[in-house]
């Protein structure tokens, strides 16, 4: 694997392979010594143009558990935000000898631009680009689903037949996009639920079904309900009238929670707006996978860093 920019186009074998490596990485966390020497001497740069403490920390922990040298380059408040271009930053990092760059950027496609520019030769790992993709989030979500389904027998399994409903601001969600492509590759079926204002205007090329009514989607008894964070600024841009109405129509409240099967998973990429898109009881219920998702995030990121930084770099374009 040369870069990880998106989950679009990923094949099932590759996806299962990443999840399997993550299983081994997860074992490390249970050991006395929670560290592997694998990436000793490799330099990983966390290039964060957008604040995200959780994702940044997760990557930091992953890189450190693999013994990589890690530098976090928080572009906020540095020269980058003062007009230094992506190009200059990339060339600087290349000069510093970065082997991998984990990039979070507010512009869709920023990771692609970095990977294709020729400004830097390092492996590029997309840690969230605008409203485009967030591939490691989707991978950790899939890992979490698989673990809940198959437990210790997860290795080698896909998500064939799993029915996943994703609810919320699909239009602006990189998590939703990455999940749609990855879940399709793994054999799951996806239903998107949102007000029409928060769905992309044309979903004809997406491998999904979609609807506007959360209650109608719940009637189908999904195996997984994934709630997306809703941002307050969407209200002022007239995507929906107010928080109360949003919560009433598209929030996972207690009443909707009680309609779920006991083994239906409730997922959320975090951070949650309790009481808006998800009730406190739903977030803390045994159905909720929120904390597993966080723990699994480190394993997935270890797996991806390992796969990007091992192997003959030129051989697998």
């Amino acid at each position: 694997m040369r870069h990880l920019l998106s989950t679009k186009g990923i094949d099932r074998a590759t996806a299962v392979g990443i999840l399997d490596v993550a299983e081994d990485m997860a074992d490390v966390a249970t050991r006395e010594v929670k560290k592997l020497p694998t990436l000793r001497g490799k330099t990983v740069i966390n290039l964060f143009f957008e604040d995200s403490t959780r994702t940044r920390t997760s990557f930091e922990l992953a890189a450190k558990r693999l013994s990589a040298d890690l530098v976090t380059f928080s572009a906020k408040g540095s020269s980058v935000s003062k007009g230094e271009s992506l190009k200059d930053t990339a060339q600087t990092l290349a000069a510093m000898g970065a082997d991998a760059v984990v990039i979070r950027h507010s512009a869709s496609g920023a990771a692609h631009v970095l990977a294709q520019s020729g400004w830097i030769d390092a492996a590029i790992l997309n840690a969230g680009d605008g409203t485009h993709e967030h591939p490691t989030q989707a991978l950790l979500d899939a890992y979490t689903m698989r673990k809940r389904l198959h437990g210790v027998a997860s290795r080698g399994r896909d998500l064939d037949g799993l029915r996943v409903t994703i609810v919320g601001d699909i239009l602006h969600s990189r998590v939703a996009r990455s999940n749609v492509w990855l879940l399709e590759a793994l054999g799951a079926s996806v239903t998107l639920v949102a007000p029409a204002t928060l769905l992309p205007s044309d979903l004809s090329t997406w491998p999904v079904t979609y609807g506007y009514s959360f209650d109608a989607a719940l009637d189908q008894s999904p195996d997984v309900v994934m709630m997306l964070r809703i941002q307050a600024e969407r209200m002022s841009a007239a995507f929906f009238p107010n928080a109360r109405e949003y919560a009433r129509e598209w929030g996972l409240d207690d009443e909707r929670l009680d309609r779920l099967r006991a083994d239906t998973m409730v997922m959320h990429p975090g951070p949650m707006n309790r009481g808006l898109e998800i009730s406190a009881r739903a977030a803390d219920s045994p159905r909720s996978t929120v904390l597993e998702q966080v723990a699994n995030g480190v394993s997935i990121r270890m797996a991806v860093l390992y796969l990007l930084l091992s192997g003959e770099r030129e051989a697998d374009q």
Binding site: S108, G130, L171, P200, W206
Partner: peptide
Amino acid sequence: AQMNEGALSGELGLRGWP
């Protein structure tokens, strides 16, 4: 707006120009 609004802009996560 960043590109033509349609299925592709939705996929690429670029703001649509309808």
